[in-house]
Measured scan of single mutants.
Amino acid sequence: MQIFVKGLTGKTTTLEVEPSDTIENVKAKIQDKTGLPPDQQRLIFAGKQLEDGRTLSDYNIQKESTLHIVWR
């Protein structure tokens, strides 16, 4: 499925993911596209910070959802 990651600059990155992907895995995909290391990424969805060990489905993140990224 496709999801979007929007940064503070307003730039949006598209990712191809599975609902079973962990947040850690998603951060690795973001690094592949942007070069930003996972330890500098904070992902937010529906006002919650996403924890590395959880999956996208744990947070009810579905296709075409938009996550927000904040740099540490």
Rank of each mutant, 00 (worst) to 15 (best):
K29I: 06
T13H: 15
W71R: 12
D32N: 13
G47W: 05
H68M: 12
E51V: 08
E51I: 08
L67D: 00
Q2F: 13
T34M: 13
D39R: 12
I23N: 01
Q2T: 15
G7R: 06
V5K: 01
T66E: 07
K29V: 04
R42V: 15
E51D: 08
V70F: 13
I30H: 02
D32K: 14
F4G: 02
R54K: 14
I23T: 04
V26D: 00
G53E: 11
S65F: 08
K27L: 06
E64K: 07
R72W: 13
P38I: 15
E18D: 11
Q49I: 15
A46I: 06
V17C: 05
D32L: 13
T14W: 08
D52Q: 05
T55Q: 07
S65W: 03
G35S: 04
T34L: 14
G7P: 06
S57C: 04
T66L: 10
T9C: 12
T14F: 07
V70C: 07
T14K: 08
D58S: 13
L50G: 01
A46E: 15
V26M: 03
S20K: 08
G35E: 03
P19Y: 06
T22L: 11
E64F: 14
K63D: 14
L67Y: 01
S65R: 03
V26N: 00
K6W: 07
K11M: 13
T34S: 06
Q40V: 09
T13V: 15
S57Q: 12
E64Y: 14
I3S: 01
P19L: 10
G7D: 15
K33R: 09
L43R: 00
V5S: 02
I23P: 02
T22W: 05
T55A: 06
K11Y: 13
W71Q: 11
T34Y: 11
K33M: 12
I69H: 03
Q62C: 05
R42E: 12
Q41H: 08
T13D: 08
F45K: 02
P19M: 08
Y59V: 02
Q2P: 07
S57K: 12
I44W: 15
P37A: 11
R54F: 13
L15W: 03
K27G: 01
P37N: 09
A28I: 13
I23C: 02
G7A: 09
G47Y: 05
A46C: 07
Q40C: 10
T9F: 15
T66F: 07
I23Y: 01
K48E: 12
D39H: 12
E18A: 12
T9Y: 15
E16I: 12
S65I: 04
P37D: 08
L36G: 04
I44P: 00
Q62W: 07
N25I: 13
D58H: 10
D52R: 04
R54W: 11
P37G: 06
R54L: 11
V70E: 13
P19N: 05
E16V: 12
N60H: 10
I30S: 01
E24C: 06
I3W: 01
G53F: 10
L8V: 12
D32I: 13
V17E: 00
P19I: 09
L43H: 01
Q40S: 11
S65K: 03
Q40L: 11
H68A: 06
N25W: 10
T34P: 02
Y59P: 00
G7W: 15
T13L: 15
I44N: 05
H68E: 12
S20D: 13
T66R: 05
K29A: 06
L56H: 00
I23Q: 01
D21H: 05
Y59S: 02
P38W: 13
T22V: 04
I30N: 01
Q31R: 13
W71L: 15
T12R: 10
I3Y: 01
P37S: 10
P37W: 10
K27D: 00
T13Y: 15
L67E: 00
K29Q: 09
K48F: 10
K63S: 15
E16N: 13
K48V: 15
L50N: 00
L15E: 01
Q41M: 15
F4Y: 13
G35L: 04
D21R: 01
K63W: 07
G10T: 07
T55V: 06
T66N: 04
E64W: 15
L56G: 00
D39G: 12
Q49C: 10
K33W: 10
P37H: 13
I23W: 01
E51P: 02
K48D: 05
R42K: 12
L8C: 11
G10L: 09
R42Y: 13
W71G: 10
D39E: 14
W71S: 10
K33H: 09
K6C: 11
T12G: 06
G7F: 15
V70S: 09
T12L: 14
I69T: 03
L67S: 00
F4R: 06
F45S: 03
E51N: 06
T55K: 10
V5I: 14
R42P: 02
A28K: 15
E24V: 06
T55H: 05
E24W: 15
E64M: 11
K29E: 02
T12F: 11
G35K: 05
L43M: 03
E18T: 14
R42D: 11
H68S: 09
T34D: 03
Q49P: 11
K11E: 14
L15Q: 01
Q2H: 12
T14G: 05
K6I: 14
P37M: 07
R72H: 14
R72Q: 14
L43A: 02
G47N: 06
G47D: 05
D52V: 05
T55F: 05
W71Y: 12
T12D: 06
E51L: 09
V26C: 03
G53W: 13
T22A: 04
F4C: 04
M1P: 01
G10H: 09
K6S: 08
K63Y: 06
K29M: 13
P19G: 07
N60I: 03
V17F: 04
D52Y: 05
L36R: 07
D52L: 05
T13W: 15
V17D: 00
L43K: 00
N25P: 00
E64D: 14
Y59E: 02
H68V: 11
I44T: 08
S57R: 12
V17G: 01
R72V: 15
K27W: 05
D32Q: 14
S65N: 10
